[in-house]
């Protein structure tokens, strides 16, 4: 077990290195010269050459990469072009906003999917089952940003129940998730984010529960006269490890995939930050945000794998 954990940890290092290479490459594939975008057009060439040397841009790409990596490891993600502020601080502030609604969404989706999936598996062919099937197709086919727009049309424009965009008057500094006046701003983003993982997890739950119900040991339990309720808890306990793994994976996807939903709701998270970086072609900001999000995704996967190996006795890896 500890061997597996150690091995899994060590295997994460090359992946993280690969992630930094891709993030570094983002600047390289961006068209245009990073220096000319920084300076006025009439800057004398000597001064440009000086700046180039100052930023290390006259070095070979490999050297540039290691210089950049060294800075990143020290927490220096560069400076935003747009407002000349350190990228790291800005990304971290936004990341906090993203991870909170992503967590709420995924937990919500997890609970609902367990209930819906179990009912669908128990009453196969019934109304809930059909609904779940339709929901699953809808959930994987729907563009989340359109869903967000429809939610706004419905709940903000037509019904006027919920605020359409933003994070309320105080912004993220005073935002309190336990105060309805603040939290109502988060409701629609959470629903829009939760639907696709809900659809996928419900489908998985239904499949695994119905598979378990068909297995011999469940038949044995039935034959021994166990109540239907006890059998269901048995089945749910059996799918827990894989369901939790699914939860982690979906959380990772949400953190990365929230960019469009956050844009619709102008929720000040990493998604909105990315949108800003794209609009202003602020490549350092884009790079820093992507790096943090991808790093988080890798770490979540790591935690999920480790947690699963703790929970699931069948994973006997050396």
């Amino acid at each position: 077990m500890w061997m597996y954990a150690l091995r899994r940890l060590i295997l994460t290092i090359p992946i993280l290195l690969g992630v930094t290479i891709i993030c570094f490459a983002l600047v390289q594939i961006a068209p245009g010269d990073p220096i000319t975008s920084l300076v006025r057009p009439d800057t004398p060439p000597e001064q440009i050459a000086m700046l180039r040397a100052y930023y290390g841009l006259d070095q070979p790409v490999v050297v540039q990469y290691f210089m950049w990596l060294w800075r990143v490891l020290q927490g220096n993600f560069g400076t935003s072009i747009a407002n000349n502020a350190p990228v790291a601080a800005e990304v971290m502030r936004a990341f906090a906003n993203t991870i909170v609604i992503a967590l709420i969404s995924v937990v919500l989706a997890f609970i609902v999917s367990l209930i819906l999936g179990t009912i669908a598996a128990l009453r196969q062919g019934g109304i809930v089952d059909r609904l779940v099937t339709a929901l699953a197709v809808f959930g994987i086919s729907v563009p989340t940003f359109w869903l967000a727009v429809v939610l706004v049309i419905f709940f903000a424009v037509n019904l006027n129940w919920l605020p359409a965009t933003g994070m309320g008057s105080g912004g993220s500094d005073t935002f309190n998730y336990f105060d309805w006046n603040d939290f109502k701003f988060a409701v629609m983003p959470i629903i829009a984010l939760a639907l696709p993982p809900l659809a996928i997890m419900t489908r998985t739950t239904r499949a695994s529960i119905s598979e378990i119900l068909n297995q011999d040991f469940i038949q044995t339990l039935r034959a021994k006269g166990l109540s239907e309720f006890a059998i269901i808890t048995h089945a749910i306990r059996n799918i827990m490890p894989s369901a939790v793994a699914m939860l982690g994976l979906q959380l990772g996807y949400l953190i990365g995939g929230s960019v469009l939903v956050e844009t619709v709701f102008t929720w000040p998270g990493t998604g909105a930050l990315l949108n800003k970086a794209i609009l202003t072609r602020d490549i350092p900001l884009l790079q820093g945000t992507i790096l943090v999000l991808a790093g988080a995704f890798v770490l979540i996967n790591l935690v999920v794998d480790l947690a699963q190996s703790l929970v699931d006795p069948r994973i006997k890896r050396t």
Binding site: L16, I21, I29, G257, L293
Partner: peptide
């Protein structure tokens, strides 16, 4: 595997965002 370390939307936004 390195590319799998990115959620697909994020990877798309990253590349397209850089390329323009």
């Amino acid at each position: 595997d390195v590319f799998f370390a990115f959620p697909s939307v994020l990877l798309a936004v990253a590349i397209a965002g850089s390329l323009g």
